[in-house]
Amino acid sequence: MTTELAKIPENEIKNRIYTLKQKMENNNIEAVFLTHKPDICYFSGTSQDCYLYINIDHDPVLFVKRYLPRARKESCIKNIFQIPSITHIPEKIINLHSNLPKTCGLTFDVVPVRDFYFYQKLFTSTCFIDCTPVVNDCKQIKSDHEIKQMKTAAKLSEKTFSYIQENIRPGISEMEFCGIYETFARKFGHSGTLLTRHYRAEGFPFHLLSGKNGGVAGAVDTPCCGIGTSISHPFGAGAKIIERNEPILIDFGTILNGYHMDETRMFVLGDMDQKAMDASKAALEILYTLLSQMKPGVTMGDIFEKAIKSAKNLGYEEQFLGLPGIKSNFIGHSIGMELVESPIISKGNKDILKPGMVFAVEPKFIFKNEFAAGIESVIQITKNSSCFLSTTPNKIFICK
């Protein structure tokens, strides 16, 4: 891990802003006011405490509360101003552009209602509209720079799963072992906290479900939940002791240089029960089936239905994507600067796959009070087909 923090190239930022302005014009959005840190970082190159204002007819403006010297070093935005308070922003905009915009986009999916009303009082003559779809559309297609960053994150994920294979052992708790391999990943630049967009979602990298803990459903919108550490954190790894000859599902989220990788692999210390082994192999088969179907022009809903059909044909309809009555309605999600981005490969989704899209695809099963089985790998949509961005071997890790 280097002590010099990597910057987002200037041409990358300029291309993103150009794309955003095109989409703003197509949607009659005069300006956008970005307050969500991952959005600000995506379009400015910095995650300092700041706000980004982009008017379709003017250069972007970055308003920084703290810390101005780092923001200027990290961002290629030319107009960067120190502000003691957000209340000074409207006046600054008027001084720069003569007036406030008549309409201005806010990302309604992440702006709290209280903040919305506060912004409305500050921008007295402005009507705020939702620019979430426009911002999300910009992020859907990954650039060559972004693919490179995600490949680097994939290498760290692969290195961590290799470390897991070499160091997993019976007799320690799920959470203790999660701490061990997360510490390993942190040594190579893993940032620790996974970035999530939805206000009710929590991003955590320690998702180890051993034996019967994998068969416990819960609060997370995913087939495999786990017990967790307490009633206030009822998901993920817990106090259960890892044992030999039991199926172990490890879902590890990596974030490196601002980009995520999300992968799941099955492990066993010794010999896996045939039932769990067969289910784990079925998950692999579904993954490769979906890979063969994921190509430009195919609708995401069709990919979801293909996953359902494949699970049914393999005899796992009941266990696939969750327990009956609480099944997940998606098989994959976009991934990038946030762990879960738009669009989602979900039931009924009419959006089509496009070159440059990147998805974490996760066929998983839960066998109630028995175990969980599955796999998750990251797939890139290419010009004519798709390929794995994940470099971790798509296999069951058998550790003796």
Rank of each mutant, 00 (worst) to 15 (best):
N79V: 07
P84F: 09
P69A: 13
I83Q: 09
G105S: 06
T87F: 02
A71L: 11
T107K: 13
I86V: 12
G105C: 04
T107V: 11
C104K: 07
I86L: 09
F108D: 05
P69K: 15
K65S: 13
K78Q: 12
F63K: 08
S98N: 13
H58Q: 10
T107R: 15
V110S: 08
L106S: 06
C76Y: 00
E91S: 03
I94T: 03
C76I: 00
I83P: 09
R72C: 11
G105K: 07
R66G: 11
L68T: 10
C104E: 04
I77Y: 01
F81K: 14
P84Q: 12
T107H: 05
N55A: 06
T103M: 02
I89H: 10
I86K: 13
I77R: 00
F108S: 05
S75F: 00
H88S: 07
S75P: 00
F63T: 08
H58P: 04
L62P: 04
P69Y: 14
R72I: 14
K78M: 03
L100F: 01
K73T: 08
I80F: 08
I86Y: 09
Y67T: 14
V61C: 13
N95H: 09
K102E: 11
N95A: 12
K65E: 15
N79S: 14
F108W: 08
H58L: 07
A71T: 13
H97W: 13
V110W: 06
N99Q: 14
N99P: 00
P69E: 15
H97S: 08
N95C: 04
D57T: 07
I93G: 04
R70H: 11
V110A: 05
D109Q: 12
K102V: 06
Q82R: 14
F81E: 14
T107E: 15
V110M: 06
D59T: 09
N55M: 01
K92Q: 14
I56A: 04
N99W: 01
R72A: 11
